[in-house]
Design a protein around this nucleic acid. Structure first.
Lengths: 353, 353
DNA sequence: TTGTACGCGTTATCAC
DNA sequence: GTGATAACGCGTACAA
């Protein structure tokens, strides 16, 4: 037992008094500077142990101007039309990130924020060492300020016009390309693409390009068609109803998210449209549930945990180079997604209207 | 524009110099103590604005011994057998919590932790004002230390032998009771209960009691039967296979979690066991996906967002009373779940083996 | 109403 | 090796 659990927190001064040395020496032991004799060091070490001493982070931060704290910022787009209502906040991603940063001695402040909230002030106020912004779009007003502030920052799953931002993304274009090419290979000719509205610098735009590229490589393919839908289970479901009612020639759907695809699966089931016999559906992300739907979901898999780890590693490098003053070139990490074939895709129906 | 984005952070001293007053006066304005003349106050206010001044949190924390920071601790049970592999970390819960605490001026440190990690030291080190522990079990060694430390703490979805812990839970017993009673009303007689191993003070134990209670109220009901399975999609799926193979008389299943139930749904589908015709399945939580499975999932709904809000409110009260020295009675908040009937439950098969 | 002065706990500098 | 001493930025009791 290190100490009584409600005993007051010890300070360097306290420990110094106990051992009979100066607080400077104790500090040197705590920080392992090495300029303490082995003898006194061990004596101090023992007291450190028995008293359960912990350095006061605020005092240290005040001196060092570094808090060993980073922040994950998740914008909350209240505007119903502009962002996933069902923000899943991937725990896997966070886990990967946290694991890496924890090893580096950092803790994480998780913040939801309105798109209009300035974040530079809070970063400054708390002396945060770095920031990870998830899902930012150019419409986010505070982003330019963050960029200008020179605070180590990484934008994940974000698409920004600025080239000076460090980013971590999956190769969205390639992912959508994979999905579409696979469907074309199955004989589908009338394939639609479903996503949120195509913002100029959005994720969906990248996926749309990938989709278009695949189509353009195939002479028999129809025109690219984009359908807008929110990234939500319910949006998928209602879209399925609409499509079923339309009785269009569509035989396959490329979606921008698994939850959208899962909603579609459910919607088609309700309408008696069999998947994959009459309609093929392909998702994006490979969330866990994708393996347990009926039918199971063919999808584009991305490694969220690994993405978190990569983000953490890059952030640590950024912080380090910020500390030493060595500017780091702008980093753009792009992870390659893979196609996972399951049951929701199949050959194009023999007779297409 | 408040300031140049990479201008150095202002201090009270700087602002004071700019206005031509002492930093005490500026501090008084910043903290709204009221003992400043309207005249100078507005003059200072203007400079505060234009310079984009933010108080240095570390310095303030050092003085006040309060960081305006709280921590959410999520234990990670590595041990495969003892806890959900697929910890969903409910974003809804976090959102509710964050909304409330944010209004109170707090920010949140989110920490995953091994069950053996001591958390009191980090709490002390950062002068955290309060803690929320999610899913703690008695086996968590550091819990007693936390309790003894008198740090404002709330245990959510946790079952601890200690009566001195403030807790927020759903009424698990009642939830399982509701589920079981509903199935009995549908004519089922052979109903099993599926959950993780029944720890003495665990959530599952509560649910097990509720299940047993419902059975005991019905003369025709069979003996209570408990089946162990991890809380994961895959565990549900493989259990379904086992049950299908066994060809037992079981006609209904009460599960301790939606993801388990969803796994069951998938597994039964694979085995050709129709739900609900041959088997009824009922979940617990009402996660979003529950509405989009095939068939949709009958389940016991709990309000995660509301749970987060309640937790936040209680924590703020706790912190306040801790600050003023007024001890607060131990609080046990219990939210009442409700039954949501969907498609995965139906009348008991007419002929039971 | 405003200013002075001290302390919060730590670290960095510079003597000894 | 070790120890004074001065910041870091802020809040507050006390004096003016």
């Amino acid at each position: 037992m290190p100490q009584d659990d409600d005993s007051p927190q010890m300070t360097l001064e306290d420990v110094a008094a106990l051992v009979g040395v100066s607080r400077t020496t104790v500090s040197n032991v705590v920080n392992g500077t090495g300029r303490v004799s082995k003898d006194t060091a061990s004596k101090i070490g023992a007291v450190l142990q028995s008293t359960g001493f912990t350095v006061n982070a605020s005092a240290r931060t005040l001196r060092r101007k570094s808090s060993q704290l980073i922040s994950v910022l998740v914008p909350i787009y209240q505007d119903a039309d502009s962002f996933p209502k069902e923000n899943p906040f991937y725990w896997d991603f966070f886990s990967g990130l946290q694991g890496v940063t924890h090893s580096g001695g950092y803790q994480i402040l998780l913040q939801r924020m309105n798109p209009t909230d300035e974040f530079v002030p809070v970063i400054r106020a708390r002396n945060l060492d770095g920031v990870v912004v998830v899902g930012a779009y150019e419409s986010l007003a505070p982003v330019p300020h963050l960029l200008a502030s020179k605070i180590p920052a990484i934008f994940v799953d974000s698409y920004l016009p600025s080239l000076s931002a460090h980013t971590v993304n999956v190769d969205d274009q390639f992912g959508a390309y994979l999905a579409t090419r696979y469907l074309l290979g199955l004989g589908h000719r009338n394939i639609v693409f479903v996503s949120e509205p195509l913002l100029e610098h959005g994720v969906n735009n990248e996926r749309w390009y990938g989709y278009c590229q695949a189509l353009s490589e195939n002479r028999l393919a129809g025109e690219p068609i984009s359908i807008e839908a929110q990234t939500s289970l319910e949006a998928g479901r209602s879209l399925a109803h609409r499509l079923a009612y339309d009785r269009s020639k569509i035989s396959a759907i490329v979606t921008a998210a698994d939850i959208l695809a899962i909603g579609l699966l459910r919607g088609f089931h309700e309408c008696g449209v069999t998947v994959p016999q009459r309609m093929s559906v392909i998702g994006f992300d490979d969330i866990r549930h994708a393996q347990y739907t009926v039918p199971t979901l063919t999808t584009i898999r991305q490694d969220s945990f690994g993405k978190g780890e990569k983000t953490g590693q890059l952030l640590l490098r950024l912080i380090e180079s910020h500390r030493t003053g060595h500017k780091l070139d702008v980093q753009h990490i792009q992870l390659t997604p893979t196609l996972v074939v399951r049951e929701s895709t199949g050959p194009a129906p023999a007779i297409e209207a």
